[in-house]
Design a protein around this nucleic acid. Sequence first.
DNA 1: TTATGACGTATTTTT
DNA 2: TACGTCATAA
Length: 707
Amino acid sequence: MNMSTQLNSNQQEAIACTKGPLLVLAGAGSGKTRVITSKIAQLIREEFVPESHILAVTFTNKAAGEMKRRAMGMLNRPHLGTTISTFHSLCLRILRREAVLLGYTSNFSVCDSADALSLIKRILSETGRKNQKEYAPKKVQALISAVKNQSASDRKLEQLPAIDQILDQYDAALRQNDLMDFDDLLLNTVAIFEQNPSILAHYQSQFPYMLVDEFQDTNATQYRLIRLLAETAIHICVVGDEDQSIYGWRGADFENILNFPRDFDGCRVIKLEKNYRSTSKILDIANAVISHNSMRNPKVLYSDIHTDGEFVLYEAPMPQEEGVFIAKQVQALRQQGVPLNDIAVLYRANYLSRTMEDAFRRRNIPYRIVGGYKFYDRKEIKDILGYLRIIRNPSDNLSFRRIVNVPRRKIGPATIEKLESIHPVLFKSLEQLPDRFPRKQELKEFHSIIESFRKREDFGPDFLRDLIERIGYIEMLKAEEETLEAETRMENLSELVTVVGDYLDAEENPTLNGFLDTVSLLSDTDEIEDDDRVNLMTIHCAKGLEFNSVFVCGLEEGTFPNQRTMGSSRELEEERRLMYVAITRAKQNLYLSFSRERGWKWDMNRKKMSRFVKEIPLNLLKVNRPVTGLSHSRLLTAAHSSSIQPKHPNSDNSESTCTIQKGDTVMHHSYGEGAVLNVVNGNRMVVKFKRAGIKVLNSRLVQLKKD
DNA sequence: TTATGACGTATTTTT
DNA sequence: TACGTCATAA
Ligand SMILES: Nc1ncnc2c1ncn2[C@@H]1O[C@H](COP(=O)(O)OP(=O)(O)OP(=O)(O)O)[C@@H](O)[C@H]1O
């Protein structure tokens, strides 16, 4: 047995258990994923289970791909008929066959979050809620999802009483457009199963063996789906760790772990307590942090790896210095022979990657951003996909609105509104245009382009090339962008053509539907990148991964934990779990860093060190400071050597950002003269202008008028 | 009615 | 920086 297939006795026990329900409960790096992978191989090889009878559910497409690759490696097979996928891809596959039962066509499309958001914006403005702050589109979108999954808190429902009405309109619009959002994929599958016992039975018998990874991050709907599918299963195995539950904000509920033994009779519970990933010192740090959570069951996690490593805490005066520190450390690690691939820089939010990128670029250190801004989010890609979607599904008003005037056809909002009154399905209205109608020529031309491609049965690279050619997209790019920008966009389009080619090669019977499905769920960059680069990603993105050396940056109060989570202990504990996940990605070296100031170039704010760092006993970390920052380093030393925080009464921001006070008279370039009524946070102020009335604005926009 | 440019504001995490 | 909104020009 080689290293990559070794199993300890608890793991072996978990794998040997192939009947009935099984819950594997274990901390980070204890080999849960390995248990699932080995179990797939074991079932096929030793128990002669037909490979198609196994269903394994993972959290991301990337994880699914990786698991499949490993299982094929263990079985020494070039192909594997086992379904290994995310809940969403699984449901989409089922719905393509069954959704007609719910009144969708078999060509329904999946609406991504951006499309859904634009629909929500339209509904909000149609109902006159456009500029109401409590109905911020993103908030509404999150709440819609929560309501659909029955995980909305009463407090939030009360805050937005109109949510029911908005939700009705939203769902009605999706239905009319033959669209499903991400939640619908799961909900509609559950609905079909609940309403059609024979269909449920069919899928139950197709998957008598069910395995679920990252179980702590399943939401109520996913759990229902598991219960339905596993009702008659020979074996259902779920693995998870409540300390790694980091998707509560999306409706995930780690209580599912506690409910599982109750809901599945005769459930066995196996715990794995040995960590194979990290040194014992890293686990000490991780445990110190997570032990501050109250909503958890304490558990044992130990490591036999007692080798040394570096555990550094770095205080930077500014984000740029933080970047420089990380870049320098990376270079040092590289000197020591650590591959860049085995190094990760983790952060709470995507925007924090900017300063890191700068630092790496300046020093010519190769890096890659995992997740973040996606290929399929680019304008040109979404435009072309919009065409493909309207070709496949003419009811898709969202895509219609997106592309009907791209490239410019002089068809604006006013014309679209007229179309709407002819037929609620915009594309259909093109077939019923009255004799006199604005832009009739352009509309008919657009219609005939779409129709001509709908008739073609030869979806593939040439189809796509013809489409791009026919709509004049390249000319549009050349005409309206500077050449450099146009250049990259054109490269992206030819990349898309290549993607279609790859899809055609990989698929046995390729269809436009199939391609769009793959694309709409494939959010992470799935390409196997094997060139040696430092990995930059959010902590959420790093779940399930491991690296020799891990940097966690932006460890300030308000950044991590994020400001918005600091009001609720539930959310704060989720932030702490996120910190736990971050720390436990490291095998050997761990570098924590924060900056004493954070913000935008023009709006920097003083920050305190994150409480999560304070929760680590000082003797576990080596504290570093930049030479230039010495004069300002009281914060860190004081924070760590005693519990007393040195107070910086407003002197912090007032001197650097704002010399204007309440009562001053100020000038604004367009509002004119006004009196300052109030100053908030040192940089935002309420001003009563003589002509323009009361405004709230940033202090940098006004000048102090000397009396 | 559409296109364009100035100006304001806002950044959590993702299937 | 980047995006959406608003006012104005064509
Ligand atoms: N019995 C074992 N012997 C040696 N190495 C092991 C063993 N089991 C697992 N490992 C290794 O330990 C590391 C962590 O395993 P794995 O990713 O399966 O853990 P996990 O519990 O899924 O982690 P996480 O909860 O962080 O996702 C991997 O590098 C894996 O190869």
